[in-house]
Design a protein around this nucleic acid. Structure first.
Length: 435
RNA sequence: GAGGCAUUAGUUUAGUGGUAAAACUUCGAUCUGUGGCAUCGACAUCACCGGUUCAACUCCGGUAUGCCUCCCCA
């Protein structure tokens, strides 16, 4: 419920403990809908233009869908999933991300029998039990793109990046930069991982607390440490770029060539790694200089479907964090863009006129003209004030005299010019005036 | 999961160990014939629970929520 309605007018009935939305989960209030609708539209337009088909998966999934794919020791799985009671104990979870459910659907509905690759997109809420912060919520929304099946072609990575990039561009986010890296494949990554561990083991004493832990749980994350003390070690650490196999490095090289071809602004960031296990080869994140948070991210997941029991099937995808984008849209979109859709405002005087207006509105319903009224405020002055506030173009004024004469006053709210017309013609005249 | 800061009306902010102030919003009255006007009025158990005190919105502790830095991530 919107905040402004939470208070009861009856003092005796007032609740001692006010209800609140769950921690880290927010209502999208009427005033914000403008941004959500805009961003959703950008997503839909881009998806349709590039031939992605929309898919909607349930908000609940079998926990195994994520346990098996995201990595047992990843934080998302280990401590950030909401388990749902009922339907078997701990069987279902609120989905923490969108790729694994889409992959599940791909397998379940035999989409490998469609022309390959299959391009899919989705939009909806995701849930992670994190400590909330600016731009980090327990319920958040993503627009995601996936290209599944076909060959392991770097051009698909470029297309996936392109789709996310265009949405951000349409949302008028300035100074976008794409960070790109390759985290290798199942052949070269273990070698690199070993090399990295060996290197850091030698220097374990100088590592920060977090990095000591990372060394055991997720060594690749060492590259991403922000602690200044670890920085010197990072510089000398073996680089992913020097250690991935020929197949992976030529794949990355082609991705970059395609990005060049599309004139997309990118930087090669050898320290970029992702938290989810299913990624391989290309990974990327899109940033703007107006926020430290990634607005979109994604990568290639050539082993994901295999992990889920399918034939080996490559894939690549990305997701945009809608809340993070909307936060930036607020700053750039001016309020005038939010102008009201209401075109016609009814003003009445007297009970008889009030009754007539009720019926007149129904006549406008058959046209596409949106009307508004303010029943319950009988003062004509108040009604005019509200008409003005509503942003309506025309006011239709019906008083006792007009009811008697079967006329109505049509008033242009900008110029203040008004005329009296027969009430039978009001729909036609309004239609003409609005064109 | 760790550390730090914050919380006063619908909103934005004052303020004090002796039960709260302003602006805007909303609602009502003046007001049954025309535009954000004017005047008057209404709307806060000062986030919640407990402690100290003659007395707590103020001091202390806890909880919740928000924000910041981490962890991690969109």
């Amino acid at each position: 419920m919107p905040k402004q309605f939470k208070k009861s007018t009856d003092k005796n009935k007032r609740q001692k403990f006010a209800f609140k939305s769950p921690k880290g989960m927010h209502d999208i209030l009427p005033d914000d809908q403008f941004y959500w609708e805009r961003l959703s539209k950008y997503g839909k337009d881009v998806a349709e233009f590039y031939g992605y088909h929309k898919i909607e998966t349930p908000i609940l999934e079998d926990a195994e869908v994520f346990l098996k794919t995201l990595g047992e020791e990843s934080d998302v799985v280990e401590k950030e999933m909401f388990f749902v009671k009922g339907g078997g104990k701990d069987k279902y979870v609120l989905r923490p991300e969108g790729t694994a459910p889409v992959a599940r659907a791909f397998i379940e509905y035999g989409m490998s029998h469609r022309p390959q690759p299959v391009k899919l997109w989705y939009s909806g809420p995701m849930f992670r039990k994190e400590q909330p912060q600016a731009g980090r919520f327990r319920q958040f929304h993503q627009i995601g793109f996936e290209i599944i099946g076909g060959s392991i072609d770097p051009i698909y990575d470029a297309q996936i990046i392109l789709a996310s990039f265009h949405i951000l561009e349409q949302a008028k986010i300035k100074n976008l930069v794409i960070n790109v890296n390759s985290i290798g494949c199942r052949i070269c990554r273990p070698h690199y991982r070993k090399k990295l561990i060996e290197y850091y083991k030698k220097n374990e004493r100088d590592l920060c607390v977090d990095c000591k832990r990372r060394l055991k749980t997720n060594p690749l994350r060492l590259l991403d440490c922000k602690n200044a003390n670890c920085a010197p070690l990072k510089v000398k650490a073996p680089s992913l770029l020097d250690n991935i196999c020929v197949s992976c490095s030529s794949h990355l090289k082609l991705v970059l060539e395609y990005l060049d071809e599309l004139s997309l602004p990118y930087v090669l960031n050898p320290h970029l790694v992702r938290g989810l296990d299913y990624y391989s080869k290309t990974v990327f994140e899109i940033f703007t200089d107006q926020s430290p948070l990634a607005l979109a991210s994604g990568g290639r997941y050539d082993y994901l479907l295999e992990t889920m029991g399918s034939r080996p099937t490559p894939g690549t995808g990305s997701a945009i964090g809608m809340e993070r984008v909307i936060e930036l849209m607020r700053a750039t979109h001016n309020a005038s863009a939010k102008s009201s859709k209401e075109k016609v405002f009814f003003v009445y005087l007297g009970d008889l006129a009030k009754k007539k207006v009720l019926k007149l509105i129904e006549e406008f319903r058959r046209t596409n003209i949106i009307t508004q009224e303010s029943f319950g405020k009988d003062l004509i002055k108040r009604q005019m004030m509200l008409a003005d506030k509503s942003g309506a173009q025309l006011a239709l004024i019906l008083g006792q005299r007009e009811v008697f004469e079967e006329t109505i006053i049509i008033r242009d709210l900008k110029s203040g010019v008004q005329e009296t017309i027969p009430i039978t013609k009001v729909v036609d005249v309004v239609k003409k005036r609005l064109q």
